[in-house]
């Protein structure tokens, strides 16, 4: 269980970090006002500072108003549901990188349909493969957009 307060602090720290990254990154390119206007780093630098400042503002707001933020941000039950959606999606991206997006599409759809949708395994697998094939025809054949491919396509001789 995560409280709203923790979530606020966490995300404000994250945005402050991103802002800081912009500030540090911008320093490399000069942040002054040359005779031809602002230098390349000036804009990201001040934007970064602004993000850091506003993040700190959110932090202070959250700390001051701490009592009002004791509500639950994420229940255990909700967290489970989000995880059950997010983890397969993460796996989809990982598998997509390794085996190509078509294989990942088929596997992901088959998995989610059978495990979460409680469809019969045969139907799930068939739908997964069908979707991948449809995508292949729409993208590669009709529009000639190459999608990320893996060893399976290479073995089948599809480019």
């Amino acid at each position: 269980m995560i409280s709203r307060y923790t979530a606020e602090i966490g995300s404000a720290t994250l945005t402050a970090g991103l802002g800081l990254a912009a500030v540090v990154g911008a320093l490399e390119f000069g942040i002054g006002w040359g005779d031809a206007g602002p230098e390349p780093g000036a804009f990201p630098f001040y934007i970064g500072l602004l993000v850091v400042a506003a993040s700190i503002g959110t932090l202070i707001q959250a700390t001051v108003g701490r009592h009002g933020l004791q509500s639950v941000f994420l229940h255990k039950e909700e967290a489970k549901r989000v995880a059950s959606f997010f983890l397969p999606m993460l796996a989809f991206v990982v598998v997509g990188r390794l085996l190509g997006l078509y294989v990942a599409t088929a596997l992901y759809l088959a998995f989610v349909m059978s495990v979460q949708g409680k469809y019969r395994l045969v139907i799930s697998i068939a739908s997964g493969i069908a979707a991948a094939v449809i995508f292949y025809f729409v993208l590669e054949v009709a529009f000639q957009v190459p999608l990320l491919k893996g060893p399976l396509e290479a073995a089948l001789g599809l480019y």
Partner: peptide, 23 residues
């Protein structure tokens, strides 16, 4: 914060005016 992050993301990459890479 939201707007600032948008600006920062937009600044990533090639900068037309200086011809250099940023962030």
């Amino acid at each position: 914060v939201s707007m600032g992050l948008g600006f920062a993301f937009a600044a990533v990459g090639m900068d037309t005016v200086s011809g250099g890479l940023r962030l």
